[in-house]
Simulated scan of single mutants.
Amino acid sequence: MIKAGIIGGSGYTGGELIRILLNHPKVEIDFVYSTTRAGKAIAAAHPDLLGLTDLRFTGSVNLEVDVVFLCLGHGNSTKFLNAHDFSSNTKIIDLSNDFRLHKDSVYDGKDFVYGLPELQKENIRNAQYIANPGCFATAIELALLPLAKAQLLNAQIHVNAVTGSTGAGISPSATTHFSWRNGNVSWYKPFTHQHLGEINESVRSLQENTGEIMFLPMRGNFTRGILATAYTPFEGTVEDAVQLYQEFYAEAHFTQIAMEPIDLKQVVNTNQCHIHLHKHNDVLLITSAIDNLLKGASGQAVQNMNLIFGYAESEGLQLKAGVF
């Protein structure tokens, strides 16, 4: 058993991480740190955990835990690490965007590895510090990486991806308010979303010169999940594309190539990414679907932890979608 600490456990990603780790056979949660809820029951913040744990939030940190997950707002992980000096043996998995880009990956002597297992599995296994990918980035990178590996991203790539309201975090805002979000769809940050940096770095690690990725993020009127569609010119047949993707993901435990069109319900509440390929004239349409809180955040963080500690990649992550 390894001992895990969670920093910032009162939000959506923190709650999902607690849920997964409570059911992980190789992990004991040592503490869940919160500055605003210290002493309060975890189930008070996460009612879905009522009866599953008697754990309480704490205002103190055990610096000797085997692994610590940072579930903090963007920009706050660096501040927290400045104030807390963890043991040299502690693995750190950060779920913010603080360390994802190459220019930010080395911090205070810590070399953070970008934690997309389908791209970096061996590097993750040998890492001590992980920068967990963003949710949109995960869905889009998994849609494009096989084409990049084959040097086929030579024209503009158009991406449209819609996310649920949990992607905006637990703090309420005008665009997550039920009265506005329900029955509504809108775009935001067109072609400038913050995940584009890590997407470009990942794709260009396989194909140095690619066409521009034109990414339009969308807000959906549902709570969780991301459905991404990308299209770009492709000279081969759809059968060629399927073979390309199947070969690229042959060793990927959680990324599946679907022969039929996919939908969000197939992946919500799982750590899966489902991908479907469709050819129209000379254009290849790639559709990918993930749960933004699991494969796009907490589930992928646990997947990375499993790789680091030599556990089966799927340990604690055998979750089933509810498709009806």
Rank of each mutant, 00 (worst) to 15 (best):
P233M: 04
I226H: 00
A139T: 10
H158I: 12
A148W: 07
G197N: 10
P146F: 12
L196Q: 03
P172M: 07
P233T: 05
T138W: 03
L227P: 05
A150T: 05
T138N: 02
F222E: 06
S186F: 15
G167V: 11
A228P: 08
P217S: 01
M218D: 08
S171A: 06
T163D: 00
N200I: 12
T210M: 04
F136N: 10
A228W: 06
K149Y: 13
F222K: 02
S205T: 06
Y188S: 03
S173N: 05
E141S: 14
T176L: 02
L152Y: 09
T176E: 02
F136W: 07
Q156S: 05
R224Q: 15
A155F: 12
H195K: 11
L227V: 13
T163Y: 01
G197K: 05
T192C: 14
K149R: 13
I140V: 12
K189A: 14
G211M: 04
A161H: 14
C135R: 04
F215G: 00
N200D: 04
M218F: 10
P146S: 15
F191P: 06
L142K: 10
G225W: 01
A148N: 07
P190K: 06
P146H: 13
E208S: 15
I170M: 02
F136Q: 09
I170F: 02
M214P: 06
L196F: 12
F215T: 02
S202L: 03
L227I: 11
T229I: 09
C135I: 15
A143W: 03
L206T: 01
T166W: 00
V185T: 14
R224N: 11
L216F: 09
P233D: 04
F222G: 01
A148P: 01
G220P: 07
F215N: 01
F136I: 11
F178Y: 07
W180F: 15
S171P: 03
G169W: 13
H158M: 05
A137V: 13
S173C: 15
I199K: 05
T210L: 04
K189N: 12
W187H: 08
A143L: 06
N184L: 03
I170K: 05
E198L: 08
R181I: 08
L142V: 07
G164D: 03
T166L: 00
T229E: 07
N154E: 03
Q156N: 07
H195R: 09
A150N: 13
T192A: 11
G211L: 07
E208Q: 15
Q151T: 01
N209I: 13
M214Y: 04
N209H: 09
H193G: 02
H195D: 14
I140N: 02
L153Q: 01
A228E: 09
